[in-house]
Amino acid sequence: MTRFYDEVMDGAAVSPTQFAVLRTIARHDVVALPDLAQALAMDRTTLYRTLKPLERAGWIATAEATGRSRQARLTVEGEAVMAEAAGAWEAAQRRFVGAFGAERWAGMAQSLGDIVALAQGGAA
Rank of each mutant, 00 (worst) to 15 (best):
A119K: 04
V14R: 00
I25C: 11
E90L: 01
F19L: 03
L22Y: 04
A102T: 05
L51N: 03
A72M: 10
W59F: 14
W59C: 05
R104G: 01
A91W: 06
G87R: 07
R27S: 15
A80R: 12
R49N: 07
W105A: 08
G11N: 09
A57L: 11
G87Y: 00
I25F: 03
E64K: 02
W59A: 02
A119G: 15
T46H: 13
E84V: 10
A26D: 13
R70Y: 10
A119M: 06
G67D: 06
L74Q: 00
Q38D: 15
E90H: 08
G67F: 00
P53H: 07
M82N: 04
H28Y: 05
E7K: 14
T17Y: 09
A86I: 06
A72H: 07
A12P: 04
E103R: 08
T62H: 00
D35C: 12
S111M: 15
G98H: 03
G113D: 15
A123C: 03
G87E: 06
L33P: 02
A20M: 13
Q71I: 02
G67P: 07
R49H: 00
V21K: 02
A12H: 03
A102D: 05
V76N: 07
A65C: 01
E103C: 12
E7N: 14
A65R: 00
A117Y: 11
A13E: 10
V31R: 04
E7Q: 06
E90T: 08
A37D: 04
A39V: 08
G11S: 07
R94H: 05
A92R: 07
T75M: 04
L22P: 03
L112H: 10
R23I: 11
R70K: 14
M9T: 14
T17G: 11
L36S: 14
A65M: 00
A80W: 07
L33M: 06
H28W: 09
S69K: 01
G107S: 08
V76E: 08
V8Y: 08
R49C: 03
G58E: 05
G11Q: 10
R94F: 02
G107T: 05
Y48L: 14
V30Y: 03
V81I: 15
G101R: 05
D35N: 13
G121T: 04
S111N: 14
Q18G: 07
R56W: 01
L36V: 05
G98W: 12
L74Y: 01
G122V: 01
G121W: 02
A37R: 04
L22V: 08
A12R: 12
A61W: 04
A12M: 08
S15K: 15
L74C: 01
F4D: 01
P34W: 13
E55Q: 09
G98M: 07
G121R: 04
S69W: 11
L74A: 09
G107C: 08
A32V: 08
R44M: 02
L36E: 15
E7F: 13
G87N: 00
T46Y: 11
H28T: 02
T2K: 12
A83Y: 05
R73N: 02
R70M: 12
R56F: 11
R73V: 09
T62A: 10
E103D: 05
M42S: 09
A39C: 15
G67N: 09
M108Y: 14
R68S: 00
A88D: 11
Q38Y: 03
A20S: 15
L36Q: 11
L51T: 02
S111C: 11
